[in-house]
């Protein structure tokens, strides 16, 4: 029998990374496809779902969680037990700190045009309607006439 002689590898082997780079580039492009500022919501909010195909748009965002009310990710006041605490200044249904914050946003030059300003509302599904109603009433008083209730699109 003839013995095959194994050649000794003397050089350091190199790993071919080109195909792996291709794969990672494809993954990167795939992930970038899902990044859209208008498509991301506050991760602490459990949004309700609805069968609608109207795409959510960017804009001034009012976020209502079971613990707090935020305007453009900045906490305006906290909620206790899912209700507006008695320490928060009110004028009937109007919530004064939220009104002031909304008015401050309205004064910023971002919202141009003649049509009524739009408020994007991201609200946790467990929040009682009385909080939502008071917040929307306040937003209406602050000049926001149209509301965009953000939901998770249901099949």
């Amino acid at each position: 029998m003839r013995r095959t002689r194994r050649r000794r590898i003397e050089e350091t082997p190199t790993v071919m990374l080109t195909s792996m780079t291709d794969m990672f580039t494809l993954i990167l492009v795939f992930l970038l496809h899902f990044i859209d500022p208008a498509m991301s919501a506050d991760p602490t909010v459990q949004l309700p779902s609805a069968a609608t195909t109207d795409a959510a748009a960017e804009g001034t965002t009012l976020t209502i969680t079971p613990d707090a009310v935020r305007l453009n990710a900045k906490t305006v006041f906290g909620l206790s037990g899912g209700q507006v605490p008695s320490t928060v200044e009110r004028d009937g249904k109007l919530i004064v700190p939220l009104y002031d914050a909304l008015r401050a946003v309205q004064k910023q030059p971002a919202g141009t045009g003649t049509e009524e300003p739009l408020l994007r509302v991201e609200c946790d599904k467990s929040v009682p309607y009385t909080v939502v109603s008071d917040a929307l009433h306040t937003a209406g008083s602050a000049g926001f006439g149209r509301f965009q209730l953000v939901v998770i699109q249901k099949e």
Binding site: F34, A38, M39, S40, A41, P43, L47, A50, T52, T53, D54, A55, A56, A57, R120, S133, L136, H137, G140, G145, R146, F147, Q148, L149, V150, V151, I152, Q153
Partner: peptide, 13 residues
């Protein structure tokens, strides 16, 4: 987030 967000328009309260 692999969820699609949509919106329901609403008028004044």
């Amino acid at each position: 987030r692999f969820t699609y967000l949509a919106q329901l328009p609403s008028g004044r309260v």
